[in-house]
Simulated assay, not measured.
Amino acid sequence: MRYLYEFKKDPFGDIGIVLPEEISLFSDFIENIATEEQADEYMEYIKKVLDGTYQDFVIELNATSVFIKKDVTIVENNFRIEEPFENTIETEQFIELLLVWREKISEIFKG
C-alpha cells in the first residue's frame, strides 16, 4: 500500500479510516461500505474496468461518488463546504484501500 492510513474512533465511537490529505475524501466513500459483499461488488466493477470489460464505471453513495478509470479513480463529495471537492488515486491503490477496509468491516460493523 503506497499510502499511509490508520483507523480511529470518532467522538461517537465509530471507527473510521484516516488517509493522507491528498486522498482524504476517499474515506468519505469507503466508510459508507458496510458489508464485505458490498466491498466485493465494488471490487468486481473495478476489475471489469481494469480488464477492459467496462471503459469506466461510476459508483454513487450518499454524498460521494467515485469515477473509476483504468489508471485513476476520482472521488467527489459535492456536499463539502470547503475545497477540495475531489481527490484522485491510482485505481490499483483504490483496490488496496477497499481490501484494507474490507478486512476491518466485521470489527467496525459488529452487532
Score class of each variant (00 low, 15 high):
17 I>K: 07
77 N>M: 02
38 Q>C: 05
46 I>H: 03
41 E>Y: 14
7 F>Q: 09
16 G>Y: 13
89 I>R: 00
84 P>Y: 08
39 A>H: 01
25 L>P: 02
34 A>I: 12
107 E>V: 13
94 F>L: 03
100 V>N: 04
105 I>Y: 06
41 E>Q: 14
96 E>S: 13
23 I>R: 08
45 Y>T: 02
10 D>A: 03
101 W>I: 05
93 Q>H: 15
47 K>A: 15
88 T>E: 08
96 E>P: 04
57 F>R: 12
77 N>H: 01
76 E>T: 13
86 E>A: 06
13 G>T: 08
105 I>W: 03
41 E>S: 06
94 F>V: 06
20 P>A: 05
2 R>C: 08
16 G>S: 11
36 E>L: 13
51 D>H: 02
110 K>W: 12
41 E>C: 04
2 R>S: 14
23 I>F: 08
19 L>E: 01
104 K>T: 01
9 K>H: 07
94 F>D: 05
50 L>I: 15
44 E>W: 13
72 V>A: 02
101 W>G: 01
30 I>V: 02
109 F>T: 05
88 T>N: 09
68 I>P: 00
72 V>S: 04
51 D>C: 08
104 K>I: 00
75 V>N: 00
47 K>Y: 09
3 Y>H: 15
22 E>N: 14
29 F>V: 06
4 L>H: 15
66 V>H: 00
61 L>W: 00
110 K>T: 10
40 D>G: 10
16 G>R: 06
89 I>H: 02
74 I>T: 14
